[in-house]
Amino acid sequence: MTASVQRPVAARRWEVDALRGLAFLAMVIYHGAFDLAAFGGWPIAVTSGGWRLFADGIASTFLFVAGISVVLARERWAKQPERYWRHIVRRTLRLGSAAGLVTLVTWLVSPPDVVLFGILHLILLSSLLALPFLRFGVWNFGFAGLAAFLGWLVSLLPGNPWLFWLGLVPEGYRSFDFRPLLPWFGVVLLGVGVASWWYGDGQRRWSLPDWSDRLLIRGLRWLGRHSLLLYLVHQPLLIAFFVAIGLIDVRRLLG
């Protein structure tokens, strides 16, 4: 007789994967506009105005979902602590490797714009820092507000080249992607607070219509489940596509 396998308390939530997939699609749109502006000479102000708000909204969605995922992982393996910590280690290694690859590639492409603390670096560090906050449940709404306040406070202090990742950004600092820990860690804590309230004990507070098998939702779920790998490959594919259809001049790209 074989021993029965204890299943996790909570399976993947289709709405969480779909939200992450939607954020990925929005990111592809933004990065497409960025590539056309940076390498194609298109007059798109991707770093200001509505485009800047769009980018901040995308980053906020990814960070919010990261906070939710930290809670769901704990609930999923609540009765299997060894599997839970193996999950934490594997996720940390995956994110760390992906973040390191982004740093290496951007340094090779354009050293002045190297990504030293972008969205992946932030999600990696924030997911680990959020672990001790899980015990506070909905009180994380207050901690999220505190992180936002500290972010504002830190922005008033002089920059520091060694603590730029915290929010002490030196004047003239540039990067393809930069999201300091403060105030953005607050968005992760907001996700932790919402998930603690909505998914208490691994169950939804209220039932949702089951749209998980609808074609659109299935597509978004697939994107959400594979968002890390897709994040790493989408920019080269986008640029190659724009070059192929003549929207980006290779000479401008290489120059």
Rank of each mutant, 00 (worst) to 15 (best):
G32E: 03
G200D: 15
F54A: 00
F34M: 05
L19H: 00
G96Y: 08
D249W: 15
A3R: 14
W85Y: 13
R13W: 09
V5S: 14
I58N: 04
Y30F: 01
S207D: 14
G96R: 12
Q203M: 11
S227H: 13
I245Q: 13
F117R: 06
G255Y: 12
G219M: 13
W198C: 04
L232G: 10
A18Q: 12
R12D: 01
G40N: 03
R20D: 09
S175W: 12
R179S: 05
W198M: 04
L215F: 15
L25V: 11
A3H: 14
V187L: 11
L53V: 08
F164N: 01
L153F: 12
V138H: 15
A244Y: 13
F185R: 03
S207C: 10
R91K: 04
W184K: 02
W197V: 01
V65F: 08
T92P: 06
L208S: 08
W152N: 10
V102A: 10
L182S: 02
F164K: 12
F39Q: 05
L229D: 07
G32W: 01
G151M: 09
S127I: 03
F62H: 07
F178G: 00
A144G: 00
G255D: 13
R205V: 07
L116R: 07
F185A: 03
W77I: 04
L156A: 15
